[in-house]
Design a protein around this nucleic acid. Sequence first.
RNA 1: GGGCGGUUAGCUCAGCUGGGAGAGCAACGGCUUUACACGCCGUAGGUCGCAGGUUCGAGCCCUGCACCGCCCACCA
Length: 804
Amino acid sequence: MEMEPLYRPQGVEERWQQTWEEEGLYAADPDPSRASWVYAFPPPNVTGSLHLGHALQLSIGDALARWKRMQGRNVLIQAGYDHAGIATQSVVEKFLESEGTSRRELGRDAFVERVWAWLHEYGGTIVGQFRRLGASMDYRRIRFTMDDAYVRAVMRFFVHLYGRGWIYRDNRIVNWCPYHETSLSDLELEDVEVDDALSTIRYPLADASGHIAIATVRPATIPADVAVAVHPEDERYRDLIGKDAVVPFVERRVPIIADERVDPEFGTGALKITPGHDPTDFAIGRDHDLLEPSAIREDGRMSDLVPELEGLTQEEAAERILDWCRERDLLEKREHYRHSVPTCERCHTRIEPRISLQWWCRMGELKQPALEALRERRVAFHPESQHRFALSSLEDAPDWNISRQIWWGHQLPVWYCPDGHITVAETEPEACTECGSAELTRESDVLDTWFSAALWPFATLGWPEQTPDLAAFYPGDLQTTAREIIRLWENRMIFSGLELLGEVPFRDVIIHTTLLAADGRRMSKSLGTGIDPLDLIAEHGADATRYGLMKMSSSQDVRFSPQQIEEGRRLANKLWNASRLLLLSGAVEPAVRPQALEERWILARVDATRAELEADLAAHDFAHAVERLYHLTFDDFCDWYLESIKPRLEEADVRATAFAALERLLKLLHPVTPHVTEEIWSHLPARASRLIVARWPEPDERFADAADALVRVQEAAERFRRSGVLTPLEGEEKRIFDTVVRPERDGARNGDVDAERARLRAEIERAERMLANERFVEKAPADVVEAEREKLERYRRELDAIGD
RNA sequence: GGGCGGUUAGCUCAGCUGGGAGAGCAACGGCUUUACACGCCGUAGGUCGCAGGUUCGAGCCCUGCACCGCCCACCA
């Protein structure tokens, strides 16, 4: 096949992706002869498409996987989808709206069928996009959290926790979305700034001795007030504590209580307590044994608490109540107030804090083994700061609200009989376990999406069955994710794995960099700041994209910059052309037969880089890892080594060594840029296997001695190019210098010996000053002082050589 | 309000346990050199956010301040 001067990844990459997969090189099967290495890739939303975060973590994870595979490990990257309960339900509901129907019109069973139909038509595109990035996942093993087998695992988990006594039902205040009519976790919310009005309203004292004024943005909730609270230390109200106030409009007597959660600085310093519609009030109410009436219904309109308000919107009700207050001179003032309120991240409806009956999982005992595992670092989050965060958020983890009032998801395996007895079973029971009634109704709630996601590392391998896959691939090795997923998912996988299988699901969790938009804001579709990785791949290739994303993954937040991707593209092209040079000179069987200094040197450089690269990858320092590969390729391999052997390329032995060095270089690069390296590999003299499964280079320190000699040549070259000064060199060193630098060309330009002399004098002066400082010589470490002396001597020698 | 991180060259970022400020890109100058102009060689560009402190010596350690980002908790 012809090798064009310009490497074009388009077409080449797709061909290798297909070949690798067809030849079964991505496949992982239990193999007792090899140690496994398992990376359960976070299952994306089944309705989702590839974004830069996926691409980044996949670049990292796949590079590690390919590295481990070349080291002989039996690598499994688990792929699949999450059903993403509320997100998917929202997407399909919007679709139904466009068709002129709705979830309610269809009813539950028909709706769920429509979701499945929708998914078969439009869902599951993202895994194809993983392929396009070159992700070496076992695509035969795609799992979905709604697969029959997976559903069985989820049911088993629920029944198990219930049997342990850790699952209970309770009325709590939850984030309620009036549009979806479901509870939401705190993490499914989005804060939005709104312009509101803050009303100050007088509540008359029951003994008619005056009034106490409160401030509220939600007058509609006044009918559900059950108390007025003040801070216990607040002098203004000390005398009122224990008295009764009269709630306007409903004219109900309520106590004035003291509670430290009231902020005396805000508003009037007095707070109306509405446990049914505010989280703080709810907490205060529980502590003071207050009633929890509800003025607002599931749909966000007024309840029948006050019959004349029933069915009104909150705005309408608020107007009525405020009018009532105005007429009696109880409305002190009404002022503009801007604040942020939680909204549903899917439909942007304002969240209604609401008390409802929910299912909960007690965390107290369940999390203990996970805490221990984290403390003992049997699971380690990287970087270290995130490990501390993971540990502290698990320590603080409140009981887990596991129920959602939506239709798409795993329906709770809970059945009620007419007498209200509860039967919990993995499959539909025949009769109530308590009274034997056969009239059973299933709980309509479904489980939180993260409840099933918590089982991902083992439910994908067949658990609860004791499958060969489970034996071979559990526990796994790697997890990668974004910071905000730690509490939602990582910690829950850890405690679930420990509870159900007795072992942690993975050893290392890499919390990857968050890529910001160029202006420093968060990347998001709604801000229009997102970048489609598929566009990057189409333009620059998957290799360049992988390289660039790894280069960008250094600190916690990094702004996206296309230059890094372009750098990757140049690297691929450079590698391509270096290989072209050797192949055009005549392919020969690779053999390590170094005869000259530069040959020993490049082999030493490649080996040194191998060692450094291994250390970088082990430390998850991907930015430095790829930078090293870039310099090895450009500076060492091309600019020095290939330039210096060019005149001798007709010698077969020289080429044999060159091909051997190239092979090692390709191997080191393969985890980062798999396609171009495999493509070049295929042009090399017949290899027994694909590069993807070739053996990672063994340490080879035979030529380490060549490094120093070459450094001398490189320094001489730098000096010559800078100043025209020729450093005396002999033999091999002089030959390489003459080949690469070519004094007849580079030296003609400027011979600024004076500048070089001045430079050396400045260095000498500086070193002399340091060494003249007694405190420095006394207190600095001996090796630092010694190094300074050596520098001084060297500079003096060099100055002598030039001629002072 | 709490937590994490950041502030170093025009841009994106490195700088290990304190010991001569770096890379890539961009800019500028020079090279049609038997692979690559997506190339090669070189030049310039930085009071390392600000103010103190510790130290013989601080980009790095300590204190305070300013600004930016993210996460969490939120005052009705």
